[in-house]
Design a protein around this nucleic acid. Sequence first.
DNA 1: CGGTATCCCCTAAGATACTG
DNA 2: CAGTATCTTAGGGGATACCG
Lengths: 166, 166
Amino acid sequence: MTVEDGTSPTPGYCADTGTDYDVSQWDTREGCEVRQILDRVADKWSLLVIALLERRTLRFTELRRAIDGVSQRMLARTLRHLERDGLVSRTVYATVPPRVDYRLTDLGCTLHETIKSLVTWTEAHQSEIATARATYDRRTAAEQAEAERAAAERDAVARRVLTELG
Amino acid sequence: MTVEDGTSPTPGYCADTGTDYDVSQWDTREGCEVRQILDRVADKWSLLVIALLERRTLRFTELRRAIDGVSQRMLARTLRHLERDGLVSRTVYATVPPRVDYRLTDLGCTLHETIKSLVTWTEAHQSEIATARATYDRRTAAEQAEAERAAAERDAVARRVLTELG
DNA sequence: CGGTATCCCCTAAGATACTG
DNA sequence: CAGTATCTTAGGGGATACCG
């Protein structure tokens, strides 16, 4: 079967740290639900698939064309994962040529709603983020320039000393 | 400088598909804000760091010990990214031994609030997900068993034919 | 059409060692 | 203590070929 799976059946203990606040919810280890869902949500193509499917039911090839850049393999994998988690349902019609429809389940819809709040947050704060990045980049660039200047100076001093000695 | 960076300055066009609903918001390409934030939120350690820092300011080593499994390199990288995005602030005290404090910015706090809704969603639906997975796994296991049985049968028929012919 | 199976590459992340 | 630099490895993901 060559298990190349996303949610491997690791031992998965999650309740370990005896702190008052449940940080274990954020644990990176497999077996932690939040982590699993987050990984599913965050992987390269899932979001696009979910966003597209909320609008209407789509066939495999329709998704493939809509997404632009996704390989057949990755789209299939993504859909299998979403299906396994109950977020997307798969309907096969025994016609010829075969036809397979994908649609968001109710669960998938509620997840999409939740994700949207993250989108909303991003939209609301993207200018702040952009500013922060610009500031950070400017500062680090300045620091690097200064470091190089200092290094050059040390070098010059070293050369001068050697010349005087030689 | 050996740019091993998360948010590379790719050309990054985002507004392309002329559809009514802004699916481009979900695009996987760099330059898409939602994607960038999601990547930041979703990567292996960021969430843990954010969750821990909301409780109180922490030093590098405190984070390192608290997280368990993070390498020094990855923690440093994660913190640099979060700092660049303005989610975490870094304070260096010119003492000896050196001391560096990390704390969540206001922006970081609001993000944490937003992320919590995803945690809430997960908590609310994790039993549904577990059920979906169990159902899926049972079904696929059954399908595989059936496929193997059918293959064995075909094999037996083939052998019998060969025997009768020989 | 709607997929699997196979190969392969490249990068992200871990391990290790060194520095201010 | 709080990092950076360097090397190495695992696996995510693309390309290709084939199957029902």
